[in-house]
């Protein structure tokens, strides 16, 4: 093969992908940072000379913006309540699945995984119906045991929990599979050795099973936290951030500011705040992980 041809071949293979990635994913990072220091709106989009550099004004305004602060609070609420629920429930499902025979295990694995592959909009529409205060199935079932109707999506606090329940239901599948793979990779010998030493089940669980899964748990927790920090579709479809901004998340706020108010500079600044929170949350978890390993 001629030399120039060999040099061009890699370009042929990676060229298209890298070019698209540069234009639509990499360049936007810097563009976004640039925009966040301007007052770009729809007007500026039509005539770039009307765009002004405003320094940190957007960021200052953001932290005085009550709706934004509330969306930060809600996002942390989702993470703090939702992540432990999501991680522990998928762990429990994986453990239960590992305790039954192969047929039962693979059948139920399929059922528990189903929500993960389905469309979030469709799911949110269905759950919106289930949560309906008057006609919903949930309140009907509760009424059978004489519990008064719950304002699932009508009360700011209850609505947060309703969205969390839906999101946990939806997200269990993938984490469950990761936990299951981790469980299956624990060598049988460990348990046999523990049996010989006369360990009971709880000892085996806390001394063998859980420590062996520490990487899986770490991986699931990190990805779950990142995912929940970007909570978007559920409040978008079901509540549109309401009632009274009670379910508004940071990601939804960025969308509203950017595409409903066309306040691009301001929204880009908000997206940077979210980005920094994601990075900090990830760094903190890696720190904890390091500490853990030195033990």
């Amino acid at each position: 093969m001629t030399k120039w041809k060999y040099k061009l071949m890699p370009l042929f293979f990676i060229g298209p992908a890298v070019l698209l990635l540069m234009v639509f994913s990499f360049a936007p990072i810097f563009l976004s940072l640039g925009i966040s220091f301007t007052d770009l709106t729809l007007i500026g989009l039509a005539d770039w000379s009307k765009v002004n550099f405003v320094g940190f004004e957007n960021f200052v305004k953001l932290f005085q913006d009550e709706v934004f602060l509330e969306s930060i609070f809600n996002t942390f609420f989702y993470v703090i309540i939702g992540v432990p629920l999501a991680v522990s429930s998928s762990l429990v499902i994986a453990l239960l699945l590992s305790m039954v025979g192969k047929w039962l295990s693979s059948t139920f694995r399929l059922i528990y995984y189903m929500p993960s592959v389905t469309n979030i909009v469709a799911i949110a529409v269905v759950w919106g119906f289930l949560y309906n205060q008057q006609y919903g199935l949930f309140n009907y079932i509760l009424s059978l045991v004489n519990i008064q109707s719950v304002p699932w999506l009508e009360d700011p606090l209850v609505a947060k929990f309703s969205l969390i329940i839906l999101a946990v239901w939806k997200s269990n599948g993938v984490s469950m599979l990761i936990f299951l793979a981790a469980l299956q990779s624990i060598p049988r010998d460990y348990y046999e050795a523990a049996d010989i030493d006369g360990a009971n089940r709880w000892q085996k669980f806390f001394k063998i099973t859980l420590p062996s899964m520490s990487f899986a748990t770490f991986f699931v927790t990190v990805t779950t936290v990142i995912g929940w920090l970007q909570f978007f579709e559920e409040p978008f479809v079901m509540t549109d951030g309401g009632p009274l901004n009670g379910t508004n998340s940071m990601a939804l706020y960025i969308y509203q500011r950017g595409f409903e108010y066309n306040d691009f500079g301001y929204a880009a600044a908000a997206s940077f705040v979210l980005f920094i929170i994601v990075i900090i949350a990830t760094i903190i978890q890696f720190r904890f992980r390091k500490k853990d390993q030195t033990l």
Partner: peptide, 9 residues
């Protein structure tokens, strides 16, 4: 990268 950061640019 979180999707929300590249959404606007």
């Amino acid at each position: 990268l979180p999707g929300q950061i590249t959404m606007i640019p």
